[in-house]
Design a protein around this nucleic acid. Sequence first.
DNA 1: TTAGGGTTAG
Length: 618
Amino acid sequence: MSSSQDKHLSIMRVSHQYHLMIKACAGLGALEDGRLVHKQLIQSGFESDVFVGSSLVDMYAKCGSIKDAWRVFNKMSSRNVVTWTAMILGHVKCGQGQKALELYEQMQQEGVQPDSVTFVGVLNACASLAALKEGRCVHQQIVECGWDADVFVGNSLVDMYAKCGSMEDAWRVFNKMPSRDVVTWTAMILGYCGNIEDAWRVFNKMPLRNVVTWNAMVLGHVKCGQGQEALKLFQQMQQEGVQPNSVTFVVVLNACASMIALEEGRCVHQHIIRCGWDSDVFVGSSLVDMYAKCGSMEDAWSVFNKMPSRDVVTWTTILGGCAMHGHGKEALKHFERMCEEGVQPDDVTFICLLSACSHAGLVGEGMHCYASMVKDYMISAKLEHYTCMVDLLGRAGHLQEAENMVMAMPCKPHVAVWMALLSACRIHGHVEMAERIAKQILEMEPDNAAVYVLLSDIYAAGGNKHLCQTIEQQRKEKGVKKQPGHTWIEVNNEVHTFVVDDQDHPQMPEIHAELQRLSGHMHDAGYRPCKKFIVHDVDEEEKVFHLCHHSEKLAIAFGLINSAPGTTLRIRKNLRVCEDCHTSTKFISKIAGRTIMVRDANRFHHFEDGMCSCRDYW
DNA sequence: TTAGGGTTAG
């Protein structure tokens, strides 16, 4: 062997070694170790090697440091398809799908031909952006390049179409694929999130399933609001010998939180400890979230304090818990602690913080946070931040300021921000502004039932029975349906669901008898049904009816009958708690001597001894 | 250098 061949071989060997120590860092997400290797590479002059450079780009991108990836990428004298693909995949991973597509465009302009891995990355980018049009173009290119028979590319195509909502296209690709694996089938199931019947049809046909497939089905039920079915499926998967993993637990905890199933959640927590998943940051954050949403901030803090590592999501979750429970001052205090510990807040952190201020009526503090977000943390306000600010100002009665803020928004105001303002009009009885805003929302979303409900509440509260009836009539004529109210309560480790005017529950006679009994005591204690939102006068019989037909009242009565005296009742309602329910629950908490916690659409109401934690009814 | 599922808010 000549000396030049010898030298070449030795360079190859060293380059390969560097590639392996970098690959390991990338796999472990060990950014600091990766940086050390990078330093050595600079010293030994290997940085510009295409193979080593591509590995470095990949390592930085995988560790989430896209800036460093760019630094290496820009320094490289030559780049191949692997270098470009690593950059594309890195941007997809960081949630920058648009940038990934731009890189793909640039790569082609520079004459580099994509391979199957590039296509997988680009399709992922399209899927993350739900960019069906761009996805179709890429599909066309894939067919032209002859990559459509590749199972990886095929899977990504199915995934892209499914995520873009075109199940027809997904099935077309699926049927043409020469071979399918468990990933192909699972992508189809995931495409049916929200359409659980079709997901089941695919699941039942599958020749092979793994834990990801089961997780997808459990998730499908959670997304459809079928928490109990999700938990049943979790049992079934274990009976069939499939070991749950961290994702399973995250999804199952989500199901528990959605139903406020605290006891079930505690069982899952024990299971997590037995499996050794409790030190995982994803699982830990989900546990914090579950306990907070199930009404136990004590447990949420206990998990939080024991976690070996906490990231921005963990902190944001606990701040969100504080917000939900009305602990505004606490949220602000812990936000400072978070920053002191060197955790960089993100846009979601500020949404939680602003919502904490809003729920606690801390207007000045909220405005300060908002200003600091833009100035000190360089986070530009998104639609969600504007919604929080409008909510904060509006609840506190600064309606004009809130409306000015909407008008001054740099982007087009969306329905949520108008709804926040409309809710504020309801709290403060501002009829003129409410009518204007309702009109605005209905132009954008003619089927928005909540607008009709809010407007009718505002008219009723102002004593305008005629307009109240008119708006109700308009809603009916337009065929706009109100969202039905649901309430969940967990008693003796079992979750029970109630709906408005429930007739089906086997214990209904006892529930009605309990409400009738309470009605008498409440009347004596001074409770009168809230007539504000009732169009006609209420006689004795109707008084009982108004006490009985709301789902949360049925759930409370059920809880009182079936749980041990003195225990706290935890209730979850899918809609806002109505004013009459709010008042009657105060009375019930006093008469029954129970603490009742109600989690409605966005916050907890904590009823104790005839009082509620809300400063006002919101 | 290569695929599929998950945490926070609105």
